[in-house]
Design a protein around this nucleic acid. Structure first.
Lengths: 197, 197
DNA sequence: ACACACATGTAATTGGTTACATGATTTC
DNA sequence: GAAATCATGTAACCAATTACATGTGTGT
C-alpha cells in the first residue's frame, strides 16, 4: 500500500475539512497550500478512487442539492496520514529554471538576464501580495482553529523566503546593470584554456 | 525540435566547459548548480545521443588516454542555447513536502513537527556550509572568468534563501516548543462546524 | 441565449528516477 | 588482489501535466 504525495495531500486536506469533492479539494489546496504545493485534477480524481478502494476515505453523499461526490476520512485514513506525517520528508529534486538561466547569463544576448530578473521581481511582488492577503484572512477566520499555528508557520516561511529573495533581487539588479554598463572588458577572444569551477 | 530542460542544461554546461563526457557533465552539474538543479545519468546519456543526432553537439574523441566519449557544442547548439536563454523561464510546480507536513502538523503525533523542524535546520546548516565552501572556491579559481558574476548571483541567492530559512526556523522552533508545553488547550472535542480557510 | 463556474473524468505524453548491468582504470 | 572510482548505458516504472471530452447549474 504505497501511496503517492497526492494521496497524502488529500488525506491531509480531508482531515482539516471533511466532506469535500475532488473539485473542492483542488480549490482548497490552491487557496491554502497553493504557494508551495500544486495539484491537478488529472491526479486528484484517480487518487480519490484509489483511496476509496483502499478504505482510507469514504464517499459520502453530497450534502444539500449539490451534485458533487464528497469524501471523508476513515479511521484507517487518519492512521495512514499520521504515519506519513511521522516519516522523514523527502527532498524533491531541486529545479529552478530561473536560476539556471541566470547561471548561464554570460551566454545570453545582452539585456536578457536583466529582463529575467525584473520578471522575477514582478512575480515575487505578486506572491508577496497574495501571501500577505492570505495571512490577513487566516488571522481573521482561522485564528481559533487548532491547526492555526502550523498554518501560520508555513505562511511566515513563505513570507521570509520572498522577502529575502526580493532583497537579493535588488542588489542583483544593481550588479547586472553595472555589468551591462561596463561589459566583459578586455577581450572578444575567449580563453579556451580556462580551468575549473 | 522541442528540447527538455536536461538538454538545455547540457548545452549550458558545455558552453562553459567544452569537451566533457556524460559522466563529467553530471559531476560538473553537481558541483556547480547542484544546489538548485539535479540530473541523473538516466537522463543525461540519452539526451547526449539526441543532441548529437540533432547536430547541437558533436562527439569529439577523448583527449589523452581517457576512454570517455566527450562532447562539445556546435554553432547550432550555441544558437539553440541562446534562444532558450531568452525565453521566459517556466515555473515548475512548487512542491515542498517539508512544508506540507508542517502544515498538517496538528494531525501529527506529539513531537513530530518539532523533529522535522530540527532535521530541516540540520539540512540547512549543511547546505550553508556547502555553499560558503563553494563561494570560496569560486572566488579563488573563477573570479576572472566572464561568467563569474552570474555564478556568484546564483550563489548569493542560495545563501540568502538559506539564511532566511534558518532565521525562520529559529523562531518556528520556539513557537513549536511553546505549543508543546501548552498543548491544544480546552477541548478534546473537535469542532466539526468550523469553517473557512 | 450566452457565458461562466461547477464538476468529473480519461488518454496521451513526458519527464524523470531508480535499479540494474557491465566493464575499465586507478589506487592502495 | 581488492576496492574505489570512472564510465556508459538500458529497462521498468511512476508521478504528474495537459489536453480533451462532457455535462450541469447559475446568473445575466
Amino acid at each position: 500500500m504505497e501511496l503517492n504525495q497526492t494521496a497524502y495531500l488529500i488525506l491531509g486536506i480531508l482531515s482539516l475539512h471533511p466532506r469535500q469533492s475532488g473539485y473542492h479539494i483542488r480549490k482548497t489546496v490552491e487557496s491554502s497550500v497553493g504557494y508551495f504545493w500544486g495539484e491537478s485534477y488529472g491526479q486528484i480524481y484517480p487518487t480519490l478512487k484509489r483511496l476509496a478502494a483502499e478504505g482510507l476515505i469514504v464517499p459520502c453523499g453530497p450534502v444539500g442539492q449539490k451534485r458533487a461526490q464528497e469524501y471523508s476520512l476513515t479511521p484507517a485514513g487518519q492512521v495512514c496520514l499520521q504515519e506519513w506525517l511521522a516519516l522523514p520528508w523527502r527532498e524533491d529534486p531541486p529545479r529552478n529554471e530561473f536560476l539556471l538561466k541566470l547561471f548561464f547569463g554570460v551566454e545570453a544576448a545582452p539585456g536578457v538576464p536583466t529582463a529575467h530578473l525584473r520578471a522575477f521581481q514582478q512575480k515575487l511582488r505578486a506572491l508577496l501580495a497574495t501571501l500577505t492577503g492570505l495571512e490577513k484572512l487566516a488571522r481573521q477566520h482561522n485564528a481559533e482553529q487548532p491547526g492555526f499555528p502550523y498554518w501560520m508557520l508555513t505562511l511566515t516561511y513563505g513570507l521570509a523566503q520572498i522577502r529575502a529573495a526580493l532583497e537579493w533581487s535588488e542588489s542583483a539588479l544593481e550588479l547586472l546593470t553595472s555589468l551591462e554598463a561596463a561589459p566583459h572588458p578586455p577581450s572578444a577572444i575567449p580563453d579556451s584554456t580556462a580551468t575549473g569551477l
